[in-house]
């Protein structure tokens, strides 16, 4: 078990770059990313694990960055929305109206991206299981559902072409 106390210098791998930061052990990953590294894509919607706006991937799995300590991310690969580049889910969110105000979008994108990476053939129940971890207040979820369906279709087509 690693013990931390007082200010500690740690290395965080965020979006494929190593960032050296000084943190307190109680600092959350969300606040360290936003305030010390400069990734403001993940949002503080509740800082209580309820809204999912801060969702990032840690070694490919979605986690709520407001419920993780920065020191827990040492040695892991963290991916934020700023690290997504031209993905199917981003394109589908734009074309299908997956957002309005955009505040929840980073969290939804990361969660949906991870779902399609983990199981591109996820059925409706599994999609609901994953995406009900995030809250959106603008869209009524119609655009998000359509975006997920479209991105999934495109990914499945790509995978079929590879076979």
């Amino acid at each position: 078990m690693i013990h931390y106390s007082g200010n500690v210098s740690i290395q965080l791998n965020v979006n494929r770059e190593i960032h050296e930061v000084v943190v307190m052990p109680q600092d959350t990953l969300l606040r360290v990313m936003r305030e010390k590294i400069g990734y403001t894509g993940p949002k503080a919607g509740c800082e209580n694990g309820d809204c999912g706006a801060c969702t990032v991937l840690m070694d490919g799995k979605p986690v709520k960055a407001c419920l993780m300590l920065a020191v827990e991310a040492v040695g892991k690969e963290v991916l934020t929305v700023e690290g997504l580049e031209d993905t199917e889910i981003q394109k589908a969110f734009i074309s299908e109206g997956g957002f309005q105000c955009g505040f929840c979008t980073a969290g939804f994108l990361m969660n949906a991206f991870a779902l399609l990476e983990t199981n591109p053939d996820a059925d409706e129940a599994e999609k609901k299981d994953w995406l009900s971890a995030n809250l959106c207040r603008c869209t009524g979820y119609e655009g998000i559902e359509k975006a997920l369906t479209l991105a999934q279709k495109r990914i499945q087509e790509k995978n079929n072409n590879k076979r």
């Binding site: 990734y39 929305v81 957002f99 979008t105």
Partner: peptide, 21 residues
């Protein structure tokens, strides 16, 4: 049409009030 700010919104590049530091 897609919204003017779409690409920034799906890339985490919109600066909302709280993102100012």
């Amino acid at each position: 049409l897609t919204r003017k700010e779409s690409l920034d919104k799906v890339s985490g590049r919109v600066i909302y009030g709280g993102d100012n530091m």
